[in-house]
C-alpha cells in the first residue's frame, strides 16, 4: 500500500550572514489519508520550513516527495500544490469581499476548465473532488471566477463559518473570522494534504475549537492534515511529531488500522514525547487510501 505522502531525505539549509545554517537534514515522514498529525517543537526549529518544503514552496529545501507513489517531478509545481496545500499562519484575504477572497483559488489557471490537475491519477477522491468543483461552478463551467454566492454560503455554514457575511470587506473581519475564512478557502479546493501552519495561534479558545472541528470534519472525509500547534493537545490528532535540533521525533498513537505504514518518522528514536490521545476522535472506517472520500461532502450536510 502506498502512503498518501511520503517524504524522504528532506534537507533545509538557510543562507545566513556567516555561510549557511542547516535547519534540518535527512528527515523522513509519511502521512496517510484521513489522519491529523500535530507538528510541534521549539520555535525556530524549522516547523514552517518543513511544511513549506512539503508543499514545494521552500526554495532552501530539497528532498524526495511522492504523492500516492507518484514522484513530485511528475507534477507541475502548481498541480502538486493543489494536492499538498500549505496554509500560512497569517490569513491573507485579497479582494473587496469575503466571497471574492474565497473565489481566488478558482480564478487560477490550474483549476480552469474543470481539470484539477492530477493528470489521470483517478481515484474516488478525485472523482468526488471534480463533482465538488463542478457543483461549485454551477451551470456554466467557465464561471470559475463567478461562483454562486449561495453555494459559498452553504459551504461556510457547513464549515462552521455561518456567522461570516460574504459581502463584508475582508479587513473588517476579526482575527478568528479571517483565520476561518482562509481555512475555508483552502478546504474548498479539496487538497489531499493540508499543511496548516499555526492556524489557531492568536485565536481565543472558542475560535481555536471551531478551527479544530473544521479540520476534524475534513479529515473524516479523507483529507490528511499536518498541523503546527503551540496549544495543548485538543484530541483531534492521531499522533504528534516533534521537530527539534534538526531531528524529527515521532509519536505513533495507538492506531486501529494500517499501523505499519503509519510509522511516524524514520528517525523515531524512542523519545516519544507529547503523546496525544487520537483514538477516540480519529474517524473510524477511513481507509488509508482515502477511498471513502467524497461520501460525505459538506454541502450535503448543509
Amino acid at each position: 500500500m502506498t502512503a498518501l505522502l511520503r517524504a524522504e531525505h528532506l534537507f533545509c539549509t538557510l543562507p545566513s550572514s556567516d555561510g549557511e545554517r542547516v535547519l534540518f537534514r535527512d528527515l523522513s515522514l509519511q502521512v496517510e489519508s484521513g489522519e491529523i498529525v500535530d507538528l510541534t517543537g521549539p520555535s525556530g526549529s524549522g516547523k514552517s520550513s518543513l511544511l513549506t518544503a512539503l508543499a514545494q514552496l521552500n526554495p532552501h529545501a530539497s528532498g524526495d516527495l511522492t504523492l500516492r507513489g507518484r514522484p513530485a517531478s511528475a507534477f507541475t509545481p502548481q498541480q502538486w500544490r493543489t494536492q499538498v496545500t500549505y496554509l500560512p499562519q497569517q490569513a491573507i484575504l485579497t479582494g473587496g469581499t469575503v466571497a471574492e477572497a474565497i473565489r481566488l483559488p478558482f480564478t487560477l489557471a490550474v483549476r480552469a476548465g474543470g481539470s484539477n490537475g492530477t493528470e489521470g491519477a483517478e481515484d474516488a477522491y478525485d472523482g468526488g473532488r471534480r463533482r465538488f468543483l463542478s457543483l461549485l461552478r454551477g451551470a456554466d463551467r467557465h464561471t470559475a471566477d463567478r461562483l454562486d454566492d449561495a453555494a459559498i454560503s452553504r459551504m461556510l455554514d457547513a464549515l462552521g463559518c455561518g456567522d461570516i457575511e460574504l459581502d463584508r470587506p475582508p479587513h473588517d473581519l476579526s482575527g478568528g473570522q479571517a483565520a476561518r475564512v482562509a481555512l475555508a478557502r483552502t478546504l474548498l479546493t479539496r487538497p489531499k494534504l493540508l499543511l496548516a501552519d499555526e492556524v489557531d495561534a492568536g485565536l481565543d479558545d472558542d475560535n481555536a475549537a471551531k478551527v479544530a472541528a473544521i479540520m476534524t470534519r475534513a479529515a473524516r472525509e479523507g483529507m490528511a492534515v499536518i498541523r503546527i500547534r503551540h496549544r495543548p493537545p485538543d484530541g483531534a490528532s492521531s499522533r504528534t511529531l516533534v521537530l527539534s535540533d534538526g531531528r524529527l521525533h515521532g509519536n505513533d498513537a495507538t492506531h486501529d488500522s494500517g499501523s505499519t505504514d503509519m510509522q511516524a518518522a524514520a528517525h523515531a528514536d524512542g523519545s516519544r514525547s507529547g503523546r496525544t490521545q487520537g483514538d477516540e476522535t480519529h474517524p473510524d472506517g477511513v481507509h488509508p487510501d482515502g477511498s471513502r472520500a467524497g461520501t460525505a461532502r459538506p454541502e450535503e450536510e448543509a
Binding site: 514552496l57 502548481q78 496545500t85 500549505y86 500560512p88 491573507i92 487560477l108
Partner: peptide, 16 residues
C-alpha cells in the same frame, strides 16, 4: 511576499 506565498500555495502560477 506573504500574499505571493499564499497564492503560490493555492496553485497560482508565477505569472498569476
Amino acid at each position: 511576499r506573504d500574499e505571493v506565498q499564499m497564492m503560490l500555495a493555492l496553485g497560482a502560477t508565477t505569472w498569476e
